[in-house]
Design a protein around this nucleic acid. Structure first.
Lengths: 145, 145
DNA sequence: AACACATGTAACAGTCGGAGATACATATAC
DNA sequence: GTATATGTATCTCCGACTGTTACATGTGTT
């Protein structure tokens, strides 16, 4: 399956936004993310609704952080993306008459729930400033390729 | 993304195999799994190679357990399937020059590794007899729909 | 007002991996 | 030899993220 890279993509962008003094355009940020502006805006829409970033239209417009990195947890970012599915595995049918299948489903679901809790815990503990490089090497946004 | 249901499918089948006195055919087992014989055989091929089950060709042939449920862990089954990918999320590129991206990738990868360890631990602790219903309600294999 | 610039979003094609389906070779019991 | 079952190759189907194009909306400049 194709890996859903939105979380890591968006984190990357947020850290770059923090290093920037002015607004950065979708065009520039999409390039740093390795994709195109439309995909970028689609992905960032949730973060804007969640109040993590602001965007300005028109001449001189672009994107900026709405809060300092220290006040944004990784979990909030994950939620703002719409809590995308974490797992590639699962049960064929959630509701079944078969007792055997019920037991199997329970084991798989329980383990996934545990893992899910672990994700939530770790992500909730980490604020974005903890991920930012201590001594920013460059204030410029790089481009891919 | 489509959920990979092979693990739960196969567990389901193994528990039914334990309840059966004789060999069960791919046709019967595929029906109980809710799929068709070819998919079933493709999925079970790994378990046969791993020595968890045996299969006999020809008239009166079919499948049987090669070991008692108490000597098969959930983790062994997972391995026999070829350790299918557990997660739907990931990083866009594993190797990058960007320091920011490196940090982000590390956080995501580390958390996934932790979750992966949790899966391995839980799965390793559980033998299949622990999932089997205590008092088998029926020795017959049900069919879907 | 006209224009350039930037975001917002809809609509549709591309991609990748599991799942479904068919065909056919191989092996075994009767 | 025939019926029965597995073993496997080869397609197509499907769903979710990704990529792309097109166009509407809003904003600053001249």
């Amino acid at each position: 399956m194709n890996r859903d890279t939105r979380l890591s993509d968006v984190l990357h962008v947020l850290l770059h936004l923090d290093q920037a003094k002015e607004l950065l355009t979708s065009d520039v940020l999409a390039r740093s993310m390795g994709t195109n502006p439309a995909v970028f805006r689609r992905t960032m829409a949730g973060l804007r609704k969640a109040g993590l970033v602001r965007s300005e239209k028109g001449h001189g417009g672009g994107w900026q952080l709405a809060r300092p990195l220290s006040e944004i947890t990784l979990f909030e970012v994950y939620e703002a993306l719409g809590r995308p599915n974490l797992f590639a595995i699962g049960n064929r049918s959630e509701h079944t008459e078969c007792l055997v299948e019920k037991n199997v489903n329970a084991v798989v679901v329980d383990t996934m729930a545990e893992a899910s809790t672990l994700f939530a815990k770790r992500f909730g503990e980490i604020t974005l400033d903890q991920i930012a490089p201590r001594h920013p090497v460059s204030a410029s946004v790089h481009t891919h390729k």
